[in-house]
Write a protein that binds this DNA or RNA. Structure first.
Lengths: 255, 255
DNA sequence: ACCTGAACACCGTTCAAGT
DNA sequence: ACCTGAACACCGTTCAAGT
């Protein structure tokens, strides 16, 4: 994998060592080390090799510096990981503003859920980071998409407590689906044979049958199957808890 | 929990060092080191201090032995972690067999979901283990509860592919709710003030309001809110996909 | 058969020292 | 102001050696 030399002709596939020279191109001049460059290297490492590969020493190597130098730009490793979550959430693909109709809002709700799913699937390890440190990782970049999701649920007609609950339910589903899919808990091994270590082949007939269906399914369609189910339930719930919903506002200020 | 020594008078609080003497009680004689004793120590460590505390060296210390000795009973750390998942799943609290009515089956489905939730909440780190190594951790102890869940969905009238999908949807929800709750992604800090580092206090009004509701909610009730929603949707779906369901069997052979 | 000391290549983090 | 060498207390794992 090699240390990407001065002249910039390397394609950008797989270069874990990136000494990132200045635009001037002087072969010895380094771009100054910044928190952002460090965080980006950490994200790349996380996505390519998993959270365990994100060590101070390896991140240092990736930006062409000794590990100890990183401490001038991040407080410690936890701070670096907060930066990682923040960086990923800053890439959240906000969908275009919805129209006012109930159908528009439902479609927008679906789109927001899809944006969450897309963000998390692109960086599955952030689910683990959120699980471990949800409390500390509350940056604006993270809260903005949360605010949008809640705002949508309110506009769909849910009362404040119901919107909070619905957010938690759908959020659990989105998180969980990413966990199951990245752990490939549903996927079969290689052939159709033994799925575990040395299981009696017919001890789990339902599991065997289900695995074949789950493997054949498109994950996105399967996700929508569950999501639509929840969106429909929310619209029903909205009918019940509807009140003169005037003070939610009609434009999304935090976007 | 606890080292269950010869004479049973030790209270079982917090003894991480457990030299576990033999039944004979000779103060120098050790109970033989077994895979099971090692796995139990690892589970205890995981529950009390998190997955990061489960190191070969600390597990060794917990069972009164040097780290290298563990390799006589587990192949490596991955094998130990497989053992941890297996041990936890062997504790799955299977609910009592359901009656034949649609209501009985729905209640049984709810009970199975609760058993999953209870198991995972008692050992939240296994969600992470399943996510990282779902494919390799397929022991009989893990597949048995999966088989029961699938079997229940089939008895409720779902076709095989729909049962697989419904399992995935509900499974995602169960997993995700544990992730969100153990990460306390929904809980507020201490007072009612700033929830993040230094957020403009009114940048996220929906988030602020939702947090107060989520904190006030009973997590179990909130979970049931989403679960009932899915169970109802399944019963509707079952009405659509119903066929002469004769070969599912009426007793659960894998229990 | 079971346990261990010493060793190797890794971790995160600190601190005095270099430019 | 920014980077580093050396050090400390940790990791997982191997292997020859002890009982």
């Amino acid at each position: 994998m090699g240390a990407a030399p001065s002249v910039n002709l390397a394609s950008e596939t797989e270069m874990t060592e990136d000494p990132t020279h200045t635009a001037a191109g002087g072969p010895g001049a380094r771009a100054p080390l910044t928190r952002e460059r460090i965080v980006e290297a950490a994200v790349r490492l996380m996505d390519e090799e998993g959270l365990a590969a994100v060590t101070m020493r390896r991140v240092g190597r990736a930006v062409g510096v000794e590990a100890m130098s990183l401490y001038h730009h991040v407080r410690d490793k936890d701070d670096l990981l907060d930066g990682v979550v923040d960086h990923v959430m800053r890439g959240f693909p906000f969908p275009a503003e919805p129209g006012p109709s109930s159908e528009d809002l439902a479609a927008y709700g679906r789109a927001v859920a899809h944006a969450w799913r897309r963000t998390l699937r692109a960086h599955p390890a952030v689910v683990e980071l959120l699980a471990r440190r949800g409390r500390s990782a509350r940056s604006a970049a993270l809260l903005r998409p949360v605010e949008v999701a809640l705002w949508t649920l309110r506009r769909m007609g849910l009362s404040p407590p119901d919107a909070a609950r619905a957010f938690h339910v759908i959020g659990s589903y989105v998180m969980g689906s990413v966990v199951l899919e990245t752990g490939r808990i549903s996927a079969a091994e290689g052939g159709g044979g033994a799925t575990g270590h040395d299981l009696p082949p017919d001890a789990f007939p339902q599991v065997l049958e289900a695995l074949s269906y789950l493997d054949a399914d498109d994950p996105d369609e399967r996700f929508d199957f569950g999501l639509d189910l929840m969106i429909e339930a929310i619209r029903t719930l909205a009918g019940r808890s509807r009140e003169p919903e005037r003070d939610v506002g009609t434009s999304n200020a935090t976007r």
